[in-house]
Design a protein around this nucleic acid. Structure first.
Lengths: 158, 158
DNA sequence: TTGATATCATTTGCATACGAATGAATTTCC
DNA sequence: GGAAATTCATTCGTATGCAAATGATATCAA
């Protein structure tokens, strides 16, 4: 096969590819959702290796309560991106462990107020240094500059 | 208070800060794990809006079976990042819907082989174009160049 | 004021996700 | 060949995560 024929075939191929970029070609491992799920799994695993007795959602609830003080259960949920059903379970388990206490709102009787106990406050203060390590280890595959770019883009996406 | 005194205080502050960069300052919403969780939630929500009758893990199983053909249940799990317990539930539900069929490995009697049914193959072929839209919409907050960078860094992280 | 809406919380049902324990079958290694 | 280790799959328990339905309370508006 001569040089010109190969070139013609190449050009035809390119034309076809331009029309149908990847008709039969769907690569699961390159899809953002699939990799996002794996990255999240990896982070949860790193978290568990550093903080064995609390899950990331439980930690998030304690950390946010430390920031904002007493809030209603649903309000806390919206601050840490959990719907009402999910946050209830998280708070129930934190209450069972003595990290938070619940009380009724005086005025609005619908609201259930959540607050840290002394034990909960001790726990979150003790765990925050470990959480810093978790963040570092999660980002460890990236250079400092890459990590900064990644965080900016990830925030845009979330 | 004189100029020199202010300067001395500033220097002291800077020294202290250099030792303890952010003792009391832990911002949950800036931690990679927290944002990763939110980004993943957003993607799942976009997925559900486009593909209502299948979850992302179920879709991943079908898409991978389309790629590799018949495999054992555990092997499929490792290809799509699911442990044995999780993949079993996913495959059970796909089987109940007629998308996959199970058979015993002739030689190695421990293995449970999974394969697409004709219906499963039709479904995945039909859904792949929607999955492309899901990827696009998930990445929509980023420019093309940003998306390319993000995917490269995310892959490094996962 | 009261009737429609909206908000807060709970419950149920379903679907990941994973550690740990178990049992069956296979492989490895002495 | 046979004991030990490994692999495949299942089951159980616990913990998110979300949709949908429900009940109680609050707010809005006619």
């Amino acid at each position: 096969m001569g040089w010109a024929e190969v070139s013609a075939e190449d050009n035809l191929l390119k034309l076809v590819e331009a029309e149908e970029p990847d008709e039969n070609d769907y690569r699961l491992q390159e899809q953002v959702g699939f990799i996002l799920r794996k990255a999240h799994q990896r982070h949860v695993s790193i978290f568990a290796a550093h903080i064995a007795d609390l899950t990331p959602p439980q930690f998030a609830a304690l950390a946010k309560l430390r920031d904002v003080g007493e809030t209603s259960q649903n309000q806390l949920g919206s601050l840490i991106a959990m719907d009402a059903a999910t946050v209830k379970g998280v708070i129930d388990r934190l209450k069972a462990r003595g990290f938070v206490e619940l009380s009724k709102h005086e005025v609005d009787k619908r609201r259930l107020l959540v607050n840290l106990t002394a034990e909960g406050r001790d726990a979150i203060e003790r765990l925050i240094p470990l959480a810093r390590e978790i963040t570092q280890e999660t980002l460890a595959p990236l250079s400092a500059k890459e990590a900064a770019i990644f965080m900016k883009l990830l925030a845009k996406l979330a």
